[in-house]
Design a binder for these strands. Structure first.
Length: 241
DNA sequence: CACCAGGCAAGTA
DNA sequence: TACTTGCATGGT
């Protein structure tokens, strides 16, 4: 199968996986890319915006997050200095549209405090850490779990780490690529063990998975028009219409 | 009206 | 360890 896009500018040849899982994952990627086109994620400009969005979007629709980020911009709060200064109750009011606003205000504060405590408020210093240390540090923040940490590492630090979310789990289990009880690291390993460690590829792939989840692989799936409806095996689809 | 959304941590046994 | 529950607004 021909790759319709060279994912990395550094690659002169499209990647051809040598494992069955790798081939199936690249098939999935090609189908999604052909259907949706390149997404060029993350839907935010700066590294700090990526980090803010990663926390605000926890179990929350992105359109609600956009309203909250818009409020933050209006109030001039998209900076580490302003975020570290603002009282947590005030911050909560500003991000209210994102839902869970009290706990998310606390989580944002925790992350910002971490950057000041450990990196003297130097965001670049944090993002330049070696990947394992960066991940370890982010996960030590109360309110930052695996998906939030990995989103920051992939989309802000631009390291090749595959981001897993509920859509990834739902799509792959419905297509019998993993079991229903697969963990975050089962899924992350599936992608990272069988695909080249290429940040632009992981970036596009996760973005396409989210789009597929939103549009087709919902709780009530819309398999009829899904770009993956011929991407077998589908022997775990007894709950699908 | 009911249901859902790009998680995570705290509580319970 | 293995479940369960709280957190909350805004769109369909």
């Amino acid at each position: 199968m021909k790759r319709s896009l060279h994912i990395s500018n550094l690659e002169s040849e499209p990647f051809t996986p040598h494992t069955l899982s790798g081939q199936r994952l690249m098939e999935m990627f090609d189908l999604l890319l052909a259907h949706f086109g390149p997404q060029n994620w993350w839907p935010a400009k700066t590294e700090l915006e990526v980090m803010i969005g990663a926390i605000l979007t926890q179990n929350t629709n992105w359109t609600n997050v956009e309203k909250a980020i818009s409020n933050l911009k209006k109030m001039g709060l998209v900076s580490l200095d302003s975020l570290v200064s603002i009282p947590i109750e005030d911050l909560a009011k500003v991000i209210r549209p994102a839902g869970y606003y009290n706990i998310k205000a606390k989580r944002l504060k925790n992350l910002v405090d971490f950057i000041f405590d450990r990196y003297d408020g130097d965001l670049e210093g944090l993002l330049q850490e070696e990947t394992d240390l960066l991940r370890e540090g982010l996960l030590s923040v109360n309110g930052v779990g695996p998906e939030t940490a990995d989103s920051i590492i992939l989309y802000a630090a631009k390291r090749p780490l595959f981001v897993v979310d509920t859509y990834t789990h739902r799509i792959l289990s419905r297509h019998a690529m993993v079991g229903e009880d697969a963990t975050y690291y089962d899924l992350q390993g599936l992608f990272m063990d069988h695909l080249p460690e290429d940040a632009p590829l992981f970036n596009e792939f996760h973005a396409l998975i989210v789009l597929t989840g939103k549009n087709f692989c919902r709780k009530k799936p819309l398999c009829e028009d899904c770009p993956l409806n011929q991407w077998g095996p589908q022997d775990n689809m007894n709950d699908m219409i």
